[in-house]
Simulated scan of single mutants.
Amino acid sequence: MPQQVRAVVAHAKGEPVSVETIVVPDPGPGEAVVAVQACGVCHTDLHYREGGINDEFPFLLGHEAAGVVEAVGDGVSEVAPGDYVVLNWRAVCGKCRACAKGKPWYCFATHNATQKMTLPSGQELSPALGIGAFAEKTLVHAGQCTKVNPAARPQAAGLLGCGVMAGLGAAINTGQIGRGESIAVIGCGGVGDAAIAGAALAGASTIIAVDVDPTKLEWAKGFGATHTVNARDTDPVEAIKDLTGGNGADVVVDAVGRPETFTQAFYARDLAGTAVLVGVPTPEMTVELPLIEIFGRGGATKSSWYGDCLPSRDFPALIELYLQGRLPLDKFVSEEIGLDAVEEAFHRMERGEVLRSVVVL
């Protein structure tokens, strides 16, 4: 029967979130109910609260989560009650033209649970990224559940559900950084530091962190940055070239998503290098580049969707690297908090005081 649990709800644009009782229905065909153990506080959740995604209030926030499957609906075979899972927001369909081409990480028909969680009044909630995991329990499509090794701490494992995977994947999957190559990462928040950690994991020899905040540059060193550039004090394009023999980096990741940072990424890459946009711009932003420069520099400019990840492939492998001590997921966890501290965690995020606050349930 439907369950009532505590959860974080955003009712209106810009208003503080509140912890309320919500109703989680029994899972229907293809669905699963997950008991959430931990969920990271991501900037995307703040975008939802600020109306930056859409205006389908009220929102059930939270999406970087790990937990245990409690129940499944008819036709579910990929997970079973008791499975320890990381939730993902791109459950691939296996049938669209991208999946048919063998590129399911580009799936054009990802799906979520059909049923809606509600307030006790019956008002439907819009779950953030189809998940809604600032909650004791949540309803998702079974394809959004990826089984991983239960030895991994949920506070760390859940971070693969969004920001950390986006950054790691931007460097490894989209940028395809390789051993002995150079990479620059512009913006050293959670996504940027994950790109730095991914580059270190892949064996990059020169890893340049770029930011305007000295504290964030220090954090970047802890994830493997070999050099740092304070873009407030110096031209980052020239600094990156100076650190790469005058050539520019093989891969440059823009983890900010602004016209000026993308332009810097474009010009800071080597000839035939790759510029990767993983920071999310707002709809009104535009960028203008001389067409002759695009032609003459060769290489590639790419956008990275969720780090071009395939959760069923990437999550278990990355969890094993974490358990081996080769991927420092714990370093992303700045603090552990309860559901009632999410609003203040948003403010700490805005002030740049944390990489990730993690709600522990």
Rank of each mutant, 00 (worst) to 15 (best):
L243K: 06
H43Q: 12
A197I: 06
A100W: 12
V148K: 12
H347N: 11
D74Y: 13
Q123N: 12
V252W: 00
A202G: 05
A249M: 00
V287P: 06
A133T: 04
M349I: 08
R49L: 09
A10T: 04
V278N: 06
I294Y: 12
L87Y: 07
T146I: 14
P154C: 09
Y48W: 03
M165Y: 02
G62E: 14
L243Y: 10
S18M: 08
P316E: 09
D235K: 00
G82L: 04
G257M: 08
I292C: 11
A341L: 11
A7L: 04
A135D: 01
D330K: 07
T274M: 10
D340M: 11
A80E: 09
D242N: 15
A38T: 05
R269A: 00
L87N: 07
M165D: 09
Q115K: 03
I337N: 05
A98S: 14
R6Q: 15
S18N: 10
K101H: 11
G298C: 14
I208N: 00
E350G: 09
G14V: 03
L201H: 09
G178F: 15
A152Q: 04
K101V: 01
L168G: 03
L217V: 08
T138A: 00
S77T: 15
G192Q: 02
P58L: 09
I186C: 03
T234N: 01
A200G: 13
C188V: 12
A135Y: 02
L289R: 05
P127F: 07
L329N: 11
L361Y: 13
L323C: 14
A128F: 08
A35H: 14
F295K: 11
T244I: 04
Q324D: 15
G298V: 10
A197S: 01
V69P: 03
A35P: 03
A109M: 10
F266E: 01
A341Y: 13
A239N: 04
G180C: 05
V185S: 02
G325P: 01
N112F: 15
V34C: 13
D83M: 02
E20P: 01
G73P: 02
L361M: 13
Q123C: 03
G163V: 14
G52W: 02
G51V: 02
N54A: 10
A345P: 08
K13F: 03
A199S: 10
F223N: 04
A133L: 11
L160A: 01
A249F: 07
E50Y: 09
A204G: 06
V69A: 01
T274D: 10
I183H: 07
E50H: 12
D254Y: 08
L321W: 15
K302R: 15
T118W: 00
I337V: 08
V278G: 03
C107A: 05
G52D: 08
V278C: 00
